[in-house]
């Protein structure tokens, strides 16, 4: 078994699936000889050739639109968008075609495609390289949105995303691309695309997070333990569809919930989870559901980005407030 970082697990999953399915084609800007600007496709062009791992011209809507065409005609495109900040031209193809091809044609044509993109802040990057706009895609009917938060989940969820018969936007939290390694067996085993992961057991409160925010949320869990609060930590992993059953099971037990995300607060995925809890867990709640999120502002450039990112401290404080309310 190999010890790999999250970004290496992505490469491993791509290589596995390419080796086992000739219809998988990996492409994007700088994915070839350069192996992607984060090296997520390192070595793939060498291994599988230029036809299966081509560098595309610089055009994101083209990447999405050609993926729709390829997918509808028998291939499994796995395209890289270099940064989430440059994903917006794909919105047209994703919303107008990828998400509705199956339903439009009553299943005659489908879109088994994956768009991968690194996302999120905290790496001192230039403008447009730090945003988290997963909610945009989660709002689009017909598209799955997946966010792994560990090497193992990156491997299994990416395999499942490629094999899934529908379009998947696969967002990779780049702040934790290389923050730690773990053993991941390169066995082609996929993970389900509709299941939460409980990373920490607790009885007083449920903390719900995804992506790089898992790090601060787990840290908060430990700090809270020291302060006598037992926090359960859930990695949502699949933003759409949400495993609400899993989240509800936990919140019904703890009676409290705080949702953490980097993205702006307004209409963020946290709002959807909170609405579901209001509908389905109201009678079990001992305190209001709260959110710790980015502000409803443009992500500041990096001199102030730390102020924007939800910190362990903010999470702990919010949890203590919630505990005090009940």
């Amino acid at each position: 078994m190999a010890e790999v970082a999250l970004v290496e697990a992505v490469t491993m999953a791509l290589a596995w699936e390419m080796a086992h399915d000739d219809t998988v084609v990996v492409f994007g800007e700088d994915v070839g000889i350069n192996g992607g600007v984060f090296r997520a496709t390192a070595g793939l062009q060498e291994k599988f050739g230029k036809e299966r791992v081509p560098d595309t011209p610089l055009a994101e809507n083209m990447i999405a639109g050609m993926s729709v065409g390829m997918a509808a005609q028998g291939l499994k495109p796995v395209a890289e968008i270099q940064f989430m900040g440059f994903i917006y031209p794909v919105v047209d193809q994703m919303i107008s075609h990828a998400g509705r091809m199956r339903t439009r044609t009553r299943g005659r044509l489908t879109c088994p495609m994956v768009l991968r993109a690194p996302y999120g802040g905290g790496i001192h990057a230039p403008e447009h390289h730090s945003e988290s706009t997963e909610a945009l895609f989660a709002h689009m009917p017909g598209i799955r949105v997946v966010i792994p938060s560990s090497p193992g989940r990156a491997y299994g969820l990416l395999l499942a995303s490629i094999r899934d018969p529908d379009p998947v936007v696969f967002l990779e939290p780049k702040r934790i691309y290389r923050s730690y390694k773990e053993e991941v067996e390169d066995d082609g085993e996929e993970l389900p695309l509709d299941m939460i992961y409980t990373l920490r057991d607790g009885t007083d409160i449920t903390l719900v997070a995804w992506g790089a925010m898992i790090k601060e949320t787990l840290e908060a869990g430990e700090e809270l333990e020291r302060q006598g609060v037992s926090a359960e930590v859930i990695d949502v992993a699949t933003i759409y569809p949400l495993d609400m059953e899993g989240i509800l099971e936990s919140v019904e037990r703890t009676g409290r919930c705080v949702i953490v995300h980097e993205a702006p607060r307004h209409c963020g995925v946290g709002a959807e989870i909170a609405a579901e809890l209001a509908e389905k867990a109201f009678m079990h709640l001992l305190a209001p559901v709260r959110r710790v999120t980015g502000f409803d502002t443009v992500m500041p450039l990096f001199r102030m980005e730390k102020q924007y990112m939800p910190s362990t401290k903010r999470i702990v404080k919010t949890v203590l407030d919630v505990m005090a309310e009940s």
């Binding site: 307004h266 502000f295 409803d296 502002t297 500041p300 102030m304 102020q307 924007y308």
Partner: peptide, 21 residues
């Protein structure tokens, strides 16, 4: 910059919810 700089240039007329943030 001062912390409020994150917010102060978002709108000419800042929405109440943003003021609170």
């Amino acid at each position: 910059q001062a912390p409020e700089a994150i917010f102060d240039y978002m709108f000419a007329n800042m929405p109440e919810s943003l003021k609170q943030q």
